[in-house]
Nucleic acid binder design. Structure first.
Length: 278
DNA sequence: CGCTTTTATCGCGCCATACA
DNA sequence: TGTATGGCGCGATAAAAGCG
């Protein structure tokens, strides 16, 4: 196992703070701004960081951090961030695999932050207990997971031209996770911190379809899998895929695919390849 | 101008019912 | 018992109006 997480944690500054690697970083640095704002010098360029801004810097990068040089409108200083310094052979490969941006704007969602906190907790076990209970193997896997998760967050957010607001990404994710359960527009909007009308409007504007339409697609794809590969009745499938009732599932299925669900299932079982049935 | 509230329309989801 | 389909009330949606 060749990953070494040198240090990681969450820091929050309310006073001026400076950090500098004028001869270049000795390791990889990941830093996600979650609150407030600050400024950074990256390879000689000054950038302003606010919530959602992610730094991914390889060893050797000349780097400096400045908190409090540009205060908020009311003169207060606040900056919160998750950070991680590490060296790893796997990371070298990962970094070389495809061009990684040094700085990117991502949605700092709870799952990502949870992953980061997990890493922090595991690292603390390792150092506090004198290397006792912390598992280097677990840290190694957590590091890989975190990197891949960050990579996905970056590509998902890097939309052409105008990236959708975080709130829209949250709505989308909420729908993907909850469409097969009891799902209400109101819940999704609340989860994203928006009013229902605002959520509906923003979603349509950036995704190009209504939230319910998107949820229906998620439900239908889940239902198709169950119809193909399980023996659940269509009633059961309708229920556990988020269609409240079979009649509604039937209506949507037939409208979308032109054939009732039972007929589709029969055809699929007769022709196991299952291709071009719809 | 960005956002919320209001309002009118539309479609989801529940019920009834038929059929095999 | 499992599947197919129609009717209908209320929630979801979009457009308009209101508001700081």
């Amino acid at each position: 196992m060749s990953s070494v997480v040198l240090t990681c944690g969450y820091s929050y500054h309310t006073q001026r703070f400076h950090d500098h690697y004028s001869t270049g970083l000795p390791c990889y640095l990941f830093r996600l701004q979650t609150e407030g704002r600050c400024e950074a010098d990256i390879a000689g360029r000054r950038v302003s960081l606010e919530a959602g801004d992610l730094l991914m810097l390889p060893p050797g990068t000349v780097y400096g951090l400045h908190v409090g040089e540009q205060n908020a409108a009311d003169g207060s200083i606040a900056s919160g961030d998750y950070y991680l310094l590490t060296v790893s052979e796997w990371l070298d490969d990962w970094w070389a695999r495809a061009g990684k941006p040094l700085i990117a704007r991502i949605d700092p969602d709870e799952k990502l932050l949870g992953l980061w906190r997990l890493m922090i907790a595991e690292k603390r076990r390792q150092t506090d207990d004198g290397g006792g209970t912390g598992s280097p193997e677990l840290i190694d896997y957590l590091l890989r997971t975190l990197c891949l998760y960050l990579e996905r967050a970056v590509t998902e957010t890097a939309a052409p031209s105008a990236p959708p607001p975080f709130a829209v990404l949250r709505l989308k994710r909420f729908i993907e996770e909850n469409a097969t359960g009891r799902f209400k527009i109101d819940d999704a909007a609340r989860h994203a911190g928006l009013s229902v009308s605002r959520a509906v409007h923003l979603f349509k504007e950036h995704v190009g379809r209504t939230m319910m339409d998107y949820a229906t697609e998620v439900r239908l794809s889940a239902a198709l899998e169950r119809m193909k590969y399980t023996s659940f009745s269509l009633h059961q499938i309708a229920e556990n895929c988020g269609f409240g009732e079979y009649s509604y599932f039937h209506k949507v299925f037939k409208q979308r695919y032109g054939t009732p669900p039972g007929v589709f299932r029969k055809r699929f079982r007769e022709n196991e390849s299952g291709t071009n049935l719809l």
